[in-house]
Design a protein around this nucleic acid. Structure first.
Length: 350
DNA sequence: AATTCATTATCAC
DNA sequence: CTAACGGTGATAATGAATT
């Protein structure tokens, strides 16, 4: 049995807690809609803002159009990280066997902890109470036989929800849900499936009409998983503490630029920060990846691998600058975004 | 033939 | 009028380069 925990509108809820005058009015956490013409997106917003049609991932300029009177706050990641750590400390009191999906989301393995659904529900309820008592934040919990069911269940009664889906009810529970609720089906996959079935607004049960072969044909390896998923099955394991595989930084300019000074100084800055973060991992890196997005949104990456070496600022910048120059020499247009990432050496396995 | 490398696509939060 | 659209990290597909 699996428990999925999802903090409700996390960043915005934390801001409400820190500053109660944000409660009850539309609140959007993301970029400043006025600064730099508002090129960012909405990170999270509270439910009052959602009434205006605002949601995560929406362009901040569009959100501003929908609700200029909302309060717009910048992302205060340091604050949310601290709160997140507190929450995970609470989760650890329930079980060490958990998978951290993000700052505000986790799967907990209930095998060995709960013999039946009643006990599982008790654990979920206690966890919610504990988090609220310690952190004054609400969350939603879903419980099911596998990760997918638990995840879809946690959405069911949000916010402040607690939903248990018994094994026998799982198939029925997911049948009428949008196929987008299946983890791994995004906009592109949805479109492909709509073409196969010549129908939009697909429900999970609709996908049961597609053969395994056709799914694999169209979706590749993921088709195999999706074939099982739409039948309520999910083999994916709870992934305990895995090592970071890569670290990167990227930045979108306030305005697209061709200014070499600006490009270089920005790139230097990114490199330095990546080096700083990579060093704390105390592991060698073996690849540097540079990303560049131009004004037309075309995005390119260039990478180079080498003998695993310590992630020094000089190494990362040198390798990266060479790649960047090579790229810019070919495709010179005003630059929208620059990024650099390092990939750690993985040769040391378990 | 098998493995690694490079690049792009897709996804999640 | 339409498009607008971050930052971080993971995985897969595909084809080329190496071993």
């Amino acid at each position: 049995m699996v428990l999925h925990l999802d903090m409700d509108y996390f960043f915005a809820q934390v801001e409400e807690r820190e500053n109660p005058r944000f409660k009850g009015v539309p609140l959007v956490v993301g970029a400043d809609p006025k600064k730099g013409k508002g090129r960012g997106v909405v990170s999270t917003c509270n439910y009052e803002a959602r009434k205006f049609g605002i949601h995560s991932g929406m362009a901040i300029s569009k959100a501003y159009e929908a609700c200029p009177e909302a309060i717009y706050l910048p992302v205060n990641m340091e604050l949310y990280s601290r709160v997140s750590e507190n929450i995970f400390r609470i989760i650890e009191k329930v079980s060490e066997k958990y998978e951290k999906v993000s700052l505000d989301e986790a799967y907990i393995d209930l095998s060995g902890l709960a013999e039946n659904y009643k006990q599982a529900e008790r654990i979920g309820c206690d966890l919610k109470k504990l988090i609220f008592k310690k952190e004054k934040l609400t969350c939603s919990v879903g419980i099911g036989e596998n990760k997918m069911i638990a995840k879809i269940a946690s959405e069911e009664d949000k916010p402040d929800g607690l939903k248990v889906v018994k094994a026998g009810d799982a198939l029925k529970f997911i049948s009428q849900k949008s196929i987008r609720e299946i983890p791994g089906i995004g906009p592109k996959t949805e479109k492909k499936l709509e073409i196969i079935l010549e129908k939009s607004g697909l429900k999970i049960k609709d996908l049961r009409a597609i053969s395994k072969k056709q799914l694999v044909d169209v979706l590749g390896k993921r088709g195999e998983e999706i074939y099982k998923n739409v039948r309520g099955e999910d083999d994916s394991e709870i992934d305990l503490k895995t090592k970071t595989k890569s670290i990167g930084k990227e930045i979108t300019f306030d305005q697209d630029t061709l200014d070499p000074e600006k490009i270089i100084s920005t790139f230097k800055n990114l490199s330095q920060r990546v080096a700083g973060m990579a060093k704390t991992e105390e592991r060698p890196i073996k690849t540097v990846v540079v990303t560049c997005r131009f004004e037309n949104f075309n995005t390119y990456s260039r990478q180079v691998s080498f003998k695993p070496r310590k992630p020094t600022k000089g190494l990362i910048y040198k390798k990266g600058a060479k790649l960047l120059l090579k790229l810019l020499a070919k495709k010179l247009k005003p630059v929208r975004l620059l990024g650099i990432r390092v990939i750690f050496d993985e040769s040391d396995k378990e």
